[in-house]
């Protein structure tokens, strides 16, 4: 469980707050989407959690333990993150080298390392590409490798920071399918950061952020109901939601339901 309590952060001292006193609880095993337009503070939240940004106000508890300077390195091992640009997080010269990189850093014995690397690549259907160079992979494949690299670390929490925003729709679907599978196993908490409302359907909970504040949170359906808040947060409604809003009033319905009603 991760608890953010009254978290605040500014990039430059003074007026504008990237995070404005946020409180949020994320349960173990949940898939939580954090949605917001650029500059809403969603990535800042993650950077603080990963210990990339320091000097914040408020407290973060991970499994009941308050995050501080002493336990940061240790707690960080429970998190793994996939960033936006697939090219800039690839350290290894080949797919399997990259997956093994984090394990090498943590001093995992070689035999276990080989086993975990293979298992992680298998989980994202990339085992047959193990000797490929990253430059010869598609965007979706690169992000799947990045997920494998994260999974190899056996994290409690897997964070995806706009991980699909730079890849094509097909690659995006592949990534979401894999997340669905990971979520189905129930061990890993997923924190999915995006500005695309159509990507949150599979998550358990969603949090809408704007200008460093949480505008609304709840189940995906609850979030979808409140279209006005979404529009006010400068988010683009998925096409079927626009249709149902215009034709049938505000009530949320899934794509299939809408088709049936029409």
């Amino acid at each position: 469980m991760i608890e953010f309590d009254n978290l605040a952060y500014s990039y430059r001292s003074g007026e504008y707050k990237a995070l404005d006193h946020i409180s949020l609880t994320i349960r173990q095993g949940d898939w939580v989407s954090i949605i917001g337009h650029n500059g809403s503070g969603k990535s800042t939240l993650v950077k603080i959690l990963m210990g990339i940004l320091e000097d914040y106000e408020g407290t973060i508890r991970v499994g009941g333990e308050v995050l501080n300077d002493e336990n940061r390195a240790e707690l960080r091992k429970r998190f793994a993150i996939v960033f936006q640009n697939p090219d800039n997080q690839f350290v290894g010269a080949t797919v399997e080298d990259d997956v093994a990189f984090g394990l090498e850093n943590n001093g995992v014995p070689r035999e276990e390392m080989v086993r975990r690397t293979e298992a992680a690549l298998e989980a994202v259907n990339m085992l047959s590409y193990r000797n490929h160079e990253p430059s010869r992979l598609s965007g979706g494949q690169k992000q799947r490798v990045a997920i494998a690299s994260a999974l190899a670390m056996a994290p409690d929490v897997l964070i995806l920071d706009e991980a699909t925003s730079m890849i094509d729709p097909e690659g995006r679907r592949e990534v979401l399918d894999i997340l669905q599978k990971i979520h189905g196993e129930g061990r890993t908490t997923l924190i999915y950061i995006t500005h695309d409302l159509s990507e949150i359907e599979q998550s358990d909970h969603a949090v809408v952020m704007r200008e460093g504040r949480i505008i609304s949170k709840g189940t995906v359906e609850e979030i979808y109901q409140d279209t006005d808040a979404l529009i006010a947060s400068r988010l683009v409604l998925p096409f079927h939601m626009k249709v149902s809003k215009r034709l049938l009033g505000g009530e949320y319905m899934s794509y299939d339901e809408l088709v049936k009603r029409l």
Partner: peptide, 11 residues
């Protein structure tokens, strides 16, 4: 970005 990615992976 690469430096951040390496650091969060425990380098």
């Amino acid at each position: 970005e690469l430096a951040i990615a390496m650091e969060v992976r425990g380098y």
